[in-house]
Amino acid sequence: MPSPFRRLHHVCIVVRDLDATVAYYERLGVSPWFDYPKSSPYVELEVPDVEGSRAMRYKCVDLDNVQLQLCEPGPQDTPQRRFLDAQGEGVYHLGFEVDDLPAGERRGAELGLAVIARGLRTDGSGFCYFDTRADAGTVLEIRASA
């Protein structure tokens, strides 16, 4: 299987104040923003803190060539909260689109990548965050949409 990191879908930036950051981008002409579309529930969900995952707020904007996501973590223990507390605001992950999430996860395992968090829905959509910070400088995520 080829690398799952070939089709960039989005860049995710962790921020302290989601509303203020969106307002700043809007002043720059970057819009329209929308809430991250949380669709059907996950049938598999492995995250450090489920309530923390649910408490995160996201806003997205589709640019001409890529989606930009802003994430404001809640106070719970999540990888995004730890990143914000340790490093401040900045790029948390790069999200890549894959056609087959389980196959992408298997390929990540073959490449020796540890999983930070993952979720899968009945329709095959979902996400998988790999712990690539030490070598890639950021988290790499793969995602599949329905």
Rank of each mutant, 00 (worst) to 15 (best):
L63Q: 02
L63W: 05
C128F: 06
L70S: 04
L113C: 12
G95K: 02
F130I: 02
M56E: 15
R143Y: 12
V30M: 04
V50D: 13
R27M: 12
V30Q: 03
G52I: 05
C128D: 01
P102L: 01
R54F: 14
L113K: 11
P73I: 02
R57K: 12
I116P: 08
G108P: 01
D85M: 15
G104C: 00
Q67T: 07
E46G: 15
A134C: 11
Y92V: 10
V30I: 07
D35M: 11
R54N: 15
V43K: 09
P79R: 03
E46V: 15
A103Y: 05
R27C: 09
P79F: 05
S31G: 14
G74P: 06
G126W: 00
Q69H: 14
P102K: 00
R82T: 09
P32N: 03
R81T: 03
V43T: 03
D123L: 02
A144L: 03
E105C: 15
E110C: 08
R57Q: 10
S125M: 06
F96D: 00
A136C: 15
R118Y: 08
Q67R: 11
E141F: 07
G112P: 06
Q76G: 11
M56I: 14
D100A: 02
D49R: 06
H93R: 02
I142R: 01
V43G: 07
G104I: 00
A144K: 01
G90P: 00
L120H: 08
A117T: 06
L120F: 07
Y36Q: 08
D131M: 13
D62Q: 04
D35L: 13
M56N: 15
G108E: 00
A117G: 08
R54T: 14
L113Q: 06
G29W: 10
L68N: 04
L68K: 05
G90L: 03
